[in-house]
Simulated assay, not measured.
Amino acid sequence: MDRGGRVVEPLSAGPAGGTAARAPRQQAGGRLAGLSLRLLRSMALPRFGFRRRSSVSVPFARRVPRLAGTCLALGFFAAIGAYGLVLNGSYADFKDAYGDLRDVAARAVGFGLDKVTISGIARLGEAELLRTAGLSSRNSLVFLDVAHVRRRLMEDPSIKSAEVRKLYPHELLINIVEREPFALWQLNGDLYVVAEDGTQIDQMRDPSLVDLPLVVGEGANLKAADYVSLLEAAGPLRSKIRAGMLISGRRWTLKMTNGLDIRLPEEGAAAAVRRLVRLDREAGLLNKDVLTVDLRMPDRIVLRLTEEAVAARAENTKKKLQRGVKGIDT
């Protein structure tokens, strides 16, 4: 107690004396502070990506995979061997026989080109199509460039469109659309099969196409569709038209089966053909002894007679003149 009768220390059970009582509390506070600091560090370190390295070192021999040295050595000698094959030309023979090394490896693990499914072919043969696409058993599906295969197919004029798709693990799908033969085109004595747009498909080899419309002359293949429309306008005379000859790239001359030539105008050719049909129906024009019927002028027809017709006409004229002279003398 102090001089005023007041108690300085709290009246509580425990060890006597203030210092002795405060010491345990200070030690407890120190332990709590240390524990809190360690807690904060453990929470902060992972947040900023810090990690303490282990003080235990792993020997280098244990960190390297087993047989790594053997594999590296084999790879080194294989690279030297491949380089030697390239230098002496043996690799080219190997490639021709088995394909690229990567294709050989892909086929070994089950990604070879074992099946090719083709749809849309009508006149092309499967073997011919595979040669055009550049496909063989040496290819692998993994390293096959489908865009390159499609470009090769599109270079064939008989193919209008092509689609190429991979179907893993070992199948290739090819869908093509062929150009349809539309007409025959004769140029410089050679005969070709052309499509409706004038594309030259192939030389004429198929006898079943002999009845296709025939166009003659430079650029006539590009106007084959116009010629076919003239045949449609001819109606009953269509079977008597043998070919259409394009003159100067501008107008048509119809070659008839009896050797007669029908010269059509550049403009209004279909109307001129219909006029020809009417004249033949009314006067049998195509059965006359004429070589050429010129329909290029809308208001008249110019005929060129055969030599026999010219001679007969001259003889008739001579006889008429002789009869006229005799009539005068009488």
Results as ranks from 00 to 15, higher is better:
Ala309Gln: 05
Phe48Gln: 00
Pro65Thr: 05
Glu196Asp: 06
Leu141Ser: 02
Ala21Ser: 14
Leu173Ala: 11
Leu279Lys: 07
Arg151Phe: 02
Ser57Tyr: 09
Glu218Asp: 14
Arg150Asp: 04
Glu266Gln: 14
Asp329Gly: 06
Tyr98Gly: 01
Glu315Gly: 13
Leu153Lys: 07
Gly125Cys: 03
Arg238Ala: 15
Ala21Gly: 13
Val177Cys: 00
Val302Cys: 01
Arg47Trp: 14
Arg102Gly: 12
Thr306Lys: 06
Ile176Gln: 04
Leu67Val: 07
Asp294Glu: 11
Ser248Cys: 04
Ala105Trp: 15
Ala13Asp: 03
Ala225Phe: 10
Glu155Gln: 10
Val8Asn: 11
Asn188Ile: 03
Gly17Cys: 09
Glu266Arg: 12
Val58Lys: 15
Phe50Met: 09
Gly84Ile: 09
Val290Ser: 05
Arg66Phe: 07
Arg66Thr: 08
Gln26His: 07
Gly110Asp: 00
Pro65Arg: 11
Ala233Asn: 00
Ala68Tyr: 13
Ile118Glu: 05
Ala283Trp: 13
Ala233His: 04
Val146Pro: 01
Gly89His: 12
Gln200Ala: 10
Leu167Ile: 12
Phe94Thr: 01
Ile118Lys: 05
Leu212Tyr: 08
Thr117Arg: 15
Ser57Met: 09
Glu155Thr: 08
Ile80Lys: 05
Ala311Ser: 11
Val290Asp: 04
Val194Ile: 15
Lys166Arg: 14
Arg242Trp: 06
Phe143Lys: 00
Ile174Asn: 07
Phe48Met: 04
Gly75Pro: 02
Ile159Gln: 00
Ser55Tyr: 09
Ala272Asp: 01
Leu237Asp: 02
Lys223His: 13
Asn221Ser: 13
Arg25Phe: 11
Gly134Gln: 10
Val277Met: 08
Gly249Lys: 09
Lys115Tyr: 09
Val146Arg: 06
Ser136Val: 03
Val8Met: 14
Leu40Cys: 12
Gly249Cys: 08
Leu222Met: 11
Glu180Ala: 14
Arg165Pro: 00
Pro181Phe: 05
Arg47Asp: 04
Ala20Trp: 05
Glu180Val: 15
Ser119Arg: 15
Pro298Ser: 15
Gly324Ile: 04
Gly235Gln: 15
Leu291Arg: 15
Tyr192Glu: 02
Arg31Cys: 06
Glu267Ala: 06
Glu180Cys: 07
Thr292Cys: 03
Ile201Arg: 01
Asn88Leu: 07
Ala73Gln: 09
Arg275Lys: 10
Val146Leu: 07
Ala195Lys: 02
Val277Trp: 10
Lys319Leu: 15
Asp2Ser: 13
Gly125Thr: 10
Ala224Gln: 04
Ile159Asn: 02
Glu155Trp: 00
Asn139Gly: 07
Leu67Gln: 10
Glu308Phe: 02
Arg22Ser: 11
Asp329Val: 12
Tyr98Ala: 02
Gly217Thr: 06
Trp185Gly: 04
Ala183Arg: 00
Ala79Lys: 02
Gly327Val: 03
Ile118Met: 07
Arg6Ile: 05
Val325Gly: 02
Asp329Tyr: 12
Val8Gly: 05
Arg251Val: 01
Val215Arg: 06
Arg152Trp: 05
Gly324Phe: 11
Gly84Asp: 00
Leu184Tyr: 01
Ser208Tyr: 10
Ala108Trp: 14
Glu163Cys: 00
Lys223Gly: 00
Asn188Phe: 04
Arg274Lys: 14
Met204Glu: 04
Ser239Cys: 00
Ala78Val: 08
